[in-house]
Design a protein around this nucleic acid. Sequence first.
DNA 1: TAACAATAATTGTTGAAACAAGTAAATGAG
DNA 2: CTCATTTACTTGTTTCAACAATTATTGTTA
Lengths: 150, 150
Amino acid sequence: MYMFTTYDESVGQLTNQTNKLIMRYLNSKLELYDITLEQWIVLLKLSQQDKITQKKLAENVDKDQPTLARILDILERKKLVERKPNEKDRRAFSVQMTEKGINLKKHVTPLLENLFATIVEGISDEEMETYKRVLLKINRNITIQEKVEK
Amino acid sequence: MYMFTTYDESVGQLTNQTNKLIMRYLNSKLELYDITLEQWIVLLKLSQQDKITQKKLAENVDKDQPTLARILDILERKKLVERKPNEKDRRAFSVQMTEKGINLKKHVTPLLENLFATIVEGISDEEMETYKRVLLKINRNITIQEKVEK
DNA sequence: TAACAATAATTGTTGAAACAAGTAAATGAG
DNA sequence: CTCATTTACTTGTTTCAACAATTATTGTTA
């Protein structure tokens, strides 16, 4: 027996609130390493696929090109990544991690593993599976809807 | 039988990605009414409790005071809310919706109901309950953790 | 009551998202 | 090959988040 309110804005607000909490929490922990969550995500993706163009990296981290470019500006200022000329395309850059960036990654990875273990404590595997499935369904609903409207 | 990877960053990233999709989608729809999702949430809370101080409103929408103040600046510029002197405390304002704001709310509410119906399509009540439960558990885990660390 | 602490709001700053507009280089069609 | 189009990236602008510092008012207490 469920109320109509199951399908109202509270779903969106709860998702948003939790997301904010997660980001705020992780950001507060990452401060120690003088890095933000957004910057970390870019580093993480770079560590998985080095020497990549900004366009591809932007797609991988799900941000638009200007946003990624400005995150890279910051990471470059911190000497964690480098933009090198792309030999095949003079419009493009080849982004890669520096030694300092690789080193930082080694320290931050275990920290985040611990933090996530804390965050999902007391949530059963089954609940987590359902949670992810619902997220993917919402994802799909919106993506499909956006395509339909085009 | 689940992998170790159930408890890794992918949870956070999926949550973040979905949240971004929802916000992007709703924002694109709200453009018609020349309003953003953040601004809408403030209006909605105001409609539930009018004549409130900025401090309390900030708590209600889970934003800090400077952030809320700037959203109110925008809403005031758009003539959707008004700041009136608080009679009991000359430091504080009493924020309330204008006629224009009340009118806008009447138009936007049904739109958002429709949008949320689309967003959660194909998700069973049971899945939705679990989804919300997991969000609340994550919420609690982080909130407790933050308290512990203080 | 005078001094001090707490509170409500604002301003400044940094980081980030999203979009528009611009530049330079690459590509494709005639 | 030339010219139009597309592509990769940058810059500008608006909106928002979070934090620090400041102003004005209120509450407290010695």
